[in-house]
Simulated scan of single mutants.
Amino acid sequence: MDMLRERFGADLLRLEKLLHERYGMNAAAFDANGARVTTFVNWGNSLCPVIKDNPASASAICAVANGHFMRQARETGLPVSGECDAGLCKFCVPVKVNGDFLGVVGGCGRLPASGEVDTLCIASANGLSGEKIGILAQDCRPITDDELAEAVALARDQVSRMTSGAA
Rank of each mutant, 00 (worst) to 15 (best):
A35P: 00
A35T: 03
T38P: 04
T38N: 10
T39R: 15
F40P: 00
F40N: 12
V41D: 13
N42G: 14
W43C: 09
N45H: 07
N45L: 08
L47A: 10
L47K: 06
L47I: 10
P49W: 11
V50Q: 11
V50Y: 00
V50I: 10
I51R: 01
K52L: 13
D53P: 00
N54W: 01
N54I: 11
P55D: 02
P55H: 02
S57D: 08
S57C: 07
A58D: 13
A60Q: 12
I61A: 09
C62Y: 03
V64P: 00
A65E: 10
N66V: 06
N66P: 00
G67K: 11
H68F: 12
F69V: 09
F69W: 02
R71Y: 06
Q72S: 09
Q72R: 14
A73I: 04
R74L: 05
E75M: 11
T76H: 10
T76Q: 09
T76Y: 11
G77Q: 11
G77I: 11
G77W: 12
L78R: 15
P79G: 09
P79Q: 11
P79I: 10
E83M: 13
D85L: 14
D85G: 15
A86F: 05
G87D: 04
G87T: 05
C89D: 10
C89K: 10
K90P: 01
F91D: 01
F91V: 04
C92L: 02
C92S: 04
V93G: 03
P94H: 03
P94Q: 02
V95D: 00
K96H: 09
V97R: 04
D100S: 08
F101D: 03
F101A: 05
L102H: 10
V105C: 01
G106T: 06
G107D: 06
G107M: 05
G107P: 05
G107Q: 06
C108F: 04
G109R: 07
G109S: 12
R110S: 05
R110Q: 03
R110E: 01
L111A: 11
P112D: 12
G115C: 02
E116A: 15
E116P: 00
V117I: 13
L120A: 14
C121F: 03
I122R: 00
S124E: 14
S124W: 09
A125M: 09
N126K: 12
N126H: 15
N126R: 14
N126P: 03
N126I: 06
G127N: 02
E131D: 15
E131V: 13
E131W: 13
I133T: 05
I133H: 08
G134E: 10
L136Q: 07
A137H: 09
Q138K: 15
Q138T: 10
D139Y: 05
C140Y: 06
C140D: 05
D146Y: 01
E150S: 09
A151K: 00
V152D: 02
A153N: 13
L154M: 12
L154T: 13
L154D: 07
A155V: 07
D157S: 14
Q158I: 00
V159L: 00
S160A: 15
S160V: 02
R161G: 10
R161H: 13
M162S: 02
M162C: 05
M162Y: 02
M162P: 02
M162D: 00
T163D: 03
G165C: 07
A166T: 06
A166I: 03
A167F: 08
